[in-house]
C-alpha cells in the first residue's frame, strides 16, 4: 500500500539551514547536507530544500549545494525558492534534484508551470502555495514568502495549476505556520479531496497527534515540518512508530 510521507523541510540561506517562525526570526540549524542525510537515515520519506538566499550568488550556490545533496542523500528531494525559469530548473535537475517547487514566479506567469511540465514532466513540478484565511473565511494566495496578498482564492489557483501540469501541491497555511497548534485541516482537506494530485500539508505540525489528524481527517498525502525535527522536539523514528500504532500506513 502506498504510504503517507513524512517530509522534513530545510530552509536554506547562504548554504546553511535556517527556520523562521511565521516567516521571520531565523535561527541557524546546521549544515543542510549533513542534516538531510541524517533525516534520510532516520526514515524521512523525502526532503524539501527551500532556498531563501537573496544575493546575486544565489543560483551558483544553490546548484553547488544541490549537487552535494544529490551525492549524499539516497531518498528523493525537492528544491525550491525563487525558481523562475526553465534554465534554473534544468540546472537544478541536472545537478540531481528530483523535483523543483515553484511559487511566486508561477503565480505571476502560470505558463511557466505548463512549460516545466512539458519539458521535464509533471512528476517533478511541485506548486508551492502560501495561503492565509482572511476574516471573510476564505483562503487567499500570498506571494513573496507571505509578504504580498493576492485576491486569488487558494483552491482556484491550485486547480488552475494542476490543469497546467503541476504534479503535486505543497500547501502552507500562514495562519498555522510556526504555531505548533496543528495543520490547517479545512483547506488541506478541500485540496486533497478536490485535486487529482497529491497534497503535502505544511505549517503547524507541533505534536505527533497533529500528523495523525492531517492524514486521517484532512486526507493529506504527505506532511511537511521543519523546526520540530531540527530542534529534536519530535524524532522521525518515534513519529513513524506512533503513526503506525495509530493505523496510519507509513514506511518503517
Amino acid at each position: 500500500m502506498l504510504t503517507k510521507r513524512i517530509i522534513p523541510c530545510l530552509d536554506i540561506k547562504d548554504g546553511r539551514t535556517v527556520k523562521g517562525t511565521n516567516f521571520v526570526d531565523l535561527r541557524d540549524a546546521g549544515d543542510p547536507v549533513e542534516l538531510g542525510a541524517l533525516y534520510a537515515k532516520q526514515g524521512a520519506d523525502e526532503l524539501v530544500f527551500l532556498d531563501i538566499t537573496a544575493t546575486v550568488e544565489k543560483r551558483k550556490t544553490l546548484r553547488e549545494l544541490v549537487n552535494r545533496i544529490a551525492h549524499h542523500v539516497n531518498i528523493p528531494f525537492t528544491v525550491g525558492g525563487g525558481i523562475s525559469s526553465l534554465e534554473d530548473v534544468s540546472a537544478l535537475l541536472q545537478n540531481g534534484a528530483d523535483k523543483i517547487s515553484v511559487n511566486t514566479a508561477a503565480f505571476k506567469n502560470p505558463q511557466l508551470i505548463n512549460d516545466l511540465a512539458k519539458e521535464f514532466g509533471s512528476q517533478c513540478v511541485v506548486l508551492a502555495i502560501d495561503t492565509k484565511k482572511e476574516e471573510d473565511g476564505e483562503w487567499y494566495v500570498y506571494l513573496n514568502g507571505g509578504r504580498t496578498k493576492t485576491d486569488k482564492k487558494c483552491v482556484d489557483w491550485a486547480k488552475e495549476a494542476v490543469d497546467l501540469g503541476a504534479g503535486e501541491i505543497l500547501l502552507t497555511s500562514m495562519n498555522h505556520d510556526g504555531t505548533k497548534q496543528g495543520f490547517a485541516l479545512d483547506i488541506t482537506r478541500t485540496l486533497a479531496t478536490q485535486l487529482p494530485v497529491p497534497v503535502i500539508a505544511s505549517g503547524g505540525g507541533g505534536t505527533m497527534a497533529h500528523f495523525t489528524d492531517v492524514f486521517e481527517n484532512a486526507y493529506a498525502d504527505a506532511a511537511l515540518a521543519a523546526s520540530i525535527f531540527h530542534f529534536k522536539e519530535i524524532a522521525i523514528p518515534d513519529l513513524k512508530s506512533y503513526l503506525k500504532e495509530m493505523n496510519i500506513n507509513v514506511r518503517i
Binding site: 500500500m1 502506498l2 504510504t3 510521507r5 520519506d45 512528476q123 497529491p198 498525502d221
Partner: peptide, 8 residues
C-alpha cells in the same frame, strides 16, 4: 491520485 508518488 495519478501518478502514484511515494513509497509502496
Amino acid at each position: 491520485k495519478i501518478p502514484q508518488i511515494g513509497w509502496n
